[in-house]
Amino acid sequence: MIAIIDYGAGNLKNVQHALKTIGISSRITDQPSDLEEAEGIILPGVGAFGEAMKRLRESGFDHKIIQQAEAGKPLLGICLGMQLLFEKSYEYGEHEGLGLIPGEIVPFEGAVKVPHMGWNQLELNGHFESDPIQKQIGEGEYVYFVHSLYARPADDKDVLFTTTYGETFTSAVKRENVTGMQFHPEKSSNTGMQLLKNFGGIVS
């Protein structure tokens, strides 16, 4: 069973429906203690980084997420949930994140329209060619984005996918048992379903 964290900042039902469609059992929970019993964890998220971290701290989810991730439990962050995995964000100031992946969240620069919204392509990192999270994912496949900032990992070895939008940015990360996807796999048609299925395979 995968625990989908409910801290008031995510498209929980969409994620749960996507998992159900591909036969993966999940449970939406607002209780940090439930993460201990789960086989895997999904941290969704929409909205502002600072407010989301505040909610995680107030609910006690922050420490429990870190504890379970450091114990080796598979964790997937989606959209804002991916950004929260990092050390800090510069969205409306400077805010501390969960610190599970070294690096920071920064705004797009230049003449591109923000938010970056709609379908865009994945560019694969050969470093993860044999990783189960990348199973049956081909170069140039399309996924669905809605975001105004992006992750800048401290270590290039943590970059799972990149995407080009004015500049090349990190669109997914993986560091041991911790995975993050800036796009919405639950809204990304067959490619998104395959990625969720791959995560489910890691969990089981």
Rank of each mutant, 00 (worst) to 15 (best):
E37K: 14
D6N: 13
G126Y: 02
Q134E: 09
I2Y: 04
K64Y: 11
V203Q: 01
S130F: 03
L75K: 09
N177H: 11
L35A: 15
I42W: 02
Y165S: 06
T191K: 00
Q31G: 05
I105W: 12
E167C: 13
L98M: 04
I24H: 00
E87M: 05
V106Q: 13
K174W: 13
T163C: 10
Y90E: 14
Q182D: 08
R27T: 08
M53H: 02
G140A: 00
G8T: 10
K20Y: 00
F145M: 14
L98Q: 09
A154P: 12
S188C: 12
G47Y: 01
H184A: 10
H116V: 14
T168H: 05
A69H: 06
D34S: 09
K197E: 00
H17R: 14
I202Y: 00
Q67R: 11
Y150R: 06
E176A: 14
N177G: 14
E91T: 10
K20L: 03
Q194F: 06
A18Y: 08
E104D: 09
L149Y: 15
D131M: 13
L100E: 01
A3R: 05
I41K: 07
L43H: 02
A3E: 11
Y7F: 01
A48S: 15
Y90C: 01
S189N: 12
G8W: 02
E51T: 13
N177R: 01
Q182E: 07
K88R: 12
S204R: 09
A38Y: 12
G60C: 07
D34N: 11
V178Q: 03
C79A: 03
T162I: 07
E123L: 14
Y144E: 08
R175K: 15
L75Y: 01
M1G: 05
I24F: 02
H184W: 06
K20V: 03
T29M: 13
